[in-house]
Amino acid sequence: MTITPRVLLHYDMDHTEPGMDIVTCPEYDDERLRELLPDVQVIWHVLRPIGAEDMDRAPGLRLIQKLGSGVNTIDLDAAAERGIAVANMPGRNARAVAETSLLLMLAALRRLVTFDRLTREGRGWPPGRAMVGGELAGRTVGLLGGGEIAGLLRETLEALGARVLFTSRRPRPDDPAWRELDDLLRASDIVSVHIPLTDETHHLLDRRRLALLPPGAIVVNTARGPVIDEAALVEALASGHLGGAGLDVFEEEPTKADNPLLALDNVVVMPHVAWLTRETWARYFEVAAENVHRLASGRDLLYRVR
Score class of each variant (00 low, 15 high):
residue 184 L to I: 09
residue 111 R to V: 01
residue 103 L to D: 11
residue 223 A to K: 12
residue 290 E to Y: 11
residue 304 R to T: 07
residue 112 L to E: 07
residue 177 A to P: 03
residue 10 H to R: 11
residue 261 L to E: 01
residue 211 A to I: 06
residue 287 V to N: 04
residue 123 R to W: 07
residue 305 V to S: 13
residue 291 N to A: 00
residue 209 R to I: 06
residue 183 D to R: 00
residue 256 K to R: 15
residue 108 A to F: 06
residue 92 R to F: 05
residue 31 E to W: 14
residue 42 V to S: 01
residue 115 F to Q: 13
residue 202 H to I: 03
residue 168 S to C: 09
residue 267 V to W: 00
residue 296 A to T: 07
residue 266 N to T: 01
residue 247 L to H: 08
residue 298 G to N: 10
residue 16 T to V: 06
residue 69 S to L: 13
residue 16 T to D: 13
residue 69 S to F: 13
residue 241 H to V: 00
residue 209 R to L: 01
residue 50 I to K: 03
residue 273 V to C: 06
residue 57 R to H: 15
residue 233 L to T: 10
residue 198 T to G: 03
residue 264 L to D: 00
residue 177 A to W: 00
residue 175 D to K: 06
residue 277 T to L: 07
residue 184 L to T: 11
residue 150 A to S: 04
residue 13 M to G: 05
residue 286 E to K: 04
residue 240 G to M: 05
residue 167 T to I: 14
residue 200 E to I: 07
residue 12 D to S: 15
residue 290 E to F: 13
residue 132 V to W: 13
residue 290 E to G: 05
residue 258 D to Q: 14
residue 283 R to E: 14
residue 23 V to L: 02
residue 269 V to P: 10
residue 44 W to C: 10
residue 277 T to N: 02
residue 219 V to H: 00
residue 130 A to I: 12
residue 57 R to V: 13
residue 105 M to G: 12
residue 193 V to W: 08
residue 76 L to S: 10
residue 184 L to R: 10
residue 179 R to M: 09
residue 214 P to H: 06
residue 53 E to M: 07
residue 206 D to I: 08
residue 196 P to R: 11
residue 30 D to N: 04
residue 68 G to Y: 12
residue 22 I to W: 10
residue 15 H to Q: 01
residue 130 A to L: 15
residue 55 M to E: 06
residue 259 N to M: 03
residue 209 R to G: 05
residue 51 G to D: 15
residue 32 R to A: 06
residue 231 A to E: 15
residue 268 V to P: 02
residue 239 S to Q: 02
residue 120 R to E: 08
residue 27 E to W: 00
residue 15 H to G: 00
residue 75 D to Y: 02
residue 196 P to C: 10
residue 68 G to P: 12
residue 174 D to K: 13
residue 135 E to T: 13
residue 52 A to K: 11
residue 248 D to V: 11
residue 239 S to L: 00
residue 306 R to P: 02
residue 161 G to A: 09
residue 56 D to E: 14
residue 59 P to F: 04
residue 139 R to C: 05
residue 217 A to V: 02
residue 27 E to C: 06
residue 170 R to D: 14
residue 99 E to S: 05
residue 120 R to S: 10
residue 272 H to K: 09
residue 210 L to N: 09
residue 51 G to R: 11
residue 78 A to M: 04
residue 243 G to P: 08
residue 193 V to E: 07
residue 260 P to F: 03
residue 18 P to M: 10
residue 77 D to T: 14
residue 21 D to L: 14
residue 199 D to S: 15
residue 211 A to Q: 12
residue 43 I to N: 03
